[in-house]
């Protein structure tokens, strides 16, 4: 489906020379270096990395907007920047920050324009629109001008707009940015449903790790233009999660104990008014051992153990790899 091999992209960026008025030096920024990966049909892949890692550069190359410096990129047998017009028929793109709908016109008008842009045959258009309206719950929204829709409603319409021409591949660039919790969950459900039922391959970039957890079985993590990890989400967790978090409510004097625990592989996150949170380093000590020490010294009324959220995993990963 998607084959990327040794893909590199370097930009020339002008830097002003200090102390001169017009002096400029050119600096080469390597946005992407020898990126290699492939994605199969129907896969949902989370493409993650910190800001400036090269995520959007990759997406732009894959959607035919940018031409890479070197390397190969073949998507359904086409090279995006060489066969732009043929290639973009196969893809749908949702930019979470921008809209492709007409602000002052009813949503259905934007859909009709897309029908003309993609030259979608009448039958195919009707059928797909019906399916999308049903799947995304757009029935009540179609007649409203886009400016009157909530962000969550709008994002559902954006998804529909990107899928009208039945693309085989969908690029989602931060599809849940700015949405409230309920809308986020709705959008994730929809993406999942659409991909399963229409066999769409999805590449998803996001900063919200819950998106990844809900949607992607596979993640590609990049930093500074290079691929750092490519594999299952659970494997990533297993590889980088060496801690568990204990939250406890207690009565009694715990300071001496806590400082003793801190020197034995525990990191205190917070402790006040009889409530403490700490991370246990599993390479130094065990959860059971810590709990035992807590219960034997303090009067514990409630205790819970959690694996860290994927967010924390990523933050730690970034730190570890010095991104």
């Amino acid at each position: 489906m998607i084959e990327i091999e040794d893909l590199s992209k370097a930009f020339q960026v002008a830097r002003k020379k200090e102390g001169t008025w017009f002096g400029r030096t050119w600096e080469t920024v390597r946005a992407l270096e020898e990126m290699t990966f492939s994605v199969g049909r129907g896969e949902i892949v989370g493409y993650i990395g910190p800001n400036g890692a090269g995520k959007s550069t990759t997406i732009k190359i894959m959607s035919g907007i940018l031409v890479p410096t070197s390397g190969r990129c073949e998507i359904m047998g086409l090279t995006p920047w060489k066969d732009r017009v043929a290639h973009v028929r196969n893809i749908g793109v949702v930019f979470g920050q921008r809209t492709q709908l007409w602000w002052d016109l009813p949503v259905s008008d934007s859909f009709l324009l897309l029908k003309d842009i993609y030259r979608i045959p009448e039958n195919s258009f009707r059928e797909q629109l019906e399916w999308l309206v049903e799947a995304l719950g757009l029935e009540a929204l179609l007649t409203f001008p886009v400016r009157q829709l909530s962000l969550g409603q709008r994002m559902r319409c954006e998804l529909a707009a990107a899928l009208l021409h039945r693309p085989s591949i969908l690029f989602l660039d931060e599809p849940t940015i700015g949405l409230d919790a309920v809308s986020k969950i709705a959008v994730r459900k929809i993406v999942k449903k659409v991909c399963a039922e229409q066999q769409v391959t999805v590449l998803l970039t996001t900063h919200d790790m819950n998106d990844i957890e809900a949607l992607a079985e596979r993640v590609i993590l990049i930093g500074k233009g290079r691929k750092l990890y490519d594999g299952g989400l659970n494997a990533l967790k297993a590889r980088y999660v060496h801690t568990k978090r204990i939250t406890a409510e207690y009565a009694g004097e715990g300071e001496a104990l806590l400082s003793a625990l801190e020197s034995a592989g525990c990191r205190l996150i917070s402790s006040d008014a009889g409530r403490l949170t700490m991370d246990v380093d599993l390479e130094v000590t065990g959860v059971a051992e810590v709990i035992q020490r807590l219960t034997s010294h303090l009067n514990i009324s409630d205790i819970s153990v959690d694996a860290p959220a994927i967010d924390d995993v990523i933050v730690r990963l970034y730190e570890e790899l010095a991104l």
Binding site: S63, I65, R84, V88, I91, F95, R98, Q100, I117
Partner: peptide, 13 residues
């Protein structure tokens, strides 16, 4: 500036 030009580039026209 708005990035809308990118949007035009991903359309088959």
């Amino acid at each position: 500036v708005s990035g809308e030009f990118d949007r035009l580039l991903v359309r088959p026209r």
